[in-house]
């Protein structure tokens, strides 16, 4: 298992390098927390040519899901990367939804279309909350691995109810040797925790779990999740709407 964790750490380390390729992606990923107050929302449209300074103001729209209303900001285009910069830093303890739209098509004008799968709505939080976003049995044999909305250096106490087997367990999950999924220098990225299941679980089984309160962290959850068979990198790539991340990581190896 240690070797697998080391391999995963290498994979994670290659994540930034892969982004210099022809991948498209969004940041923050859908469900991310601990988003930095002074960080921009980013849509990388690798492979999509857009004229310099062409107005794309409606490409990204942001809603404040706590107070409601649209978050004012500026959309800028640099090369093939679009950024949304809020007029003021993101407020703390804030949950926002942001939507990426295909640019409005103008007759007799540039025909700019986002890569497939880039459009859509995602949420992020400027908070210390930890959410369990996905769970999979496809990462480590005999274990259930959780994709967390942010990394954490603390041990997490999980209460898990397995619906099919009708049992429950409490597991204290320590940070292990794997690095968390930092996606860029200023991006905290995602976290991953695994626990061994006393019963054999399969993809498609449903579990319900919560993170018990520890330290400054209040009880988080519960969440009901269906176990996936995909590895964590693919689950994270889906939340980043990354077009080529898995193959790029493979190339990085």
């Amino acid at each position: 298992m240690r070797a697998q964790l080391l391999l995963l750490a290498i994979l994670i380390g290659c994540a930034d390098a892969s982004e210099s390729g022809d991948a498209s992606w969004i940041a923050p990923f859908d469900g991310q927390t601990a988003f930095s107050p002074d960080q921009d929302l980013v849509v990388s449209m690798r492979g999509v040519a857009v004229p310099d300074d062409y107005p794309l103001n409606d490409l990204i729209q942001v809603m404040d899901l706590l107070d409601g209303g649209r978050v004012p900001g500026e959309v800028t285009l640099t090369g093939d990367t679009v950024r949304f910069s809020p007029d003021a830093p993101w407020e703390s303890d804030r949950r926002c939804g942001w939507t990426v739209y295909d640019p409005l098509e103008i007759a007799h004008g540039p025909e700019v279309h986002l890569p497939d799968g880039t459009e859509g709505t995602a949420v992020f939080e400027v908070s210390d909350n930890i959410h369990v976003l996905d769970a999979t049995v496809g990462e480590v044999d005999g274990s259930v691995c959780l994709l967390l909305s942010r990394p954490s250096e603390d041990a997490l106490e999980l209460d898990v109810w397995v619906q099919a087997a009708e049992y429950s367990l409490t597991a204290e999950v320590q940070p292990d040797s794997r690095e968390d999924y930092a996606l860029a220098d200023t991006d905290a990225g995602a976290g991953v925790r695994c626990f061994e299941s006393p019963e054999a679980l399969a993809a498609g089984d449903a579990i319900r779990l919560q993170i018990a309160g520890t330290g400054d962290l209040f009880t988080q959850g519960p969440w009901r999740l269906e176990l996936s068979e995909a590895p964590i990198v693919e689950l994270l790539a889906a939340r980043r709407r990354a077009s080529l991340i898995p193959s790029a990581w493979e190339a990085g190896l």
Partner: peptide, 9 residues
């Protein structure tokens, strides 16, 4: 002179 998503340019 032409249309853009943000008006004329």
């Amino acid at each position: 002179a032409y249309r853009t998503p943000q008006g004329r340019d």
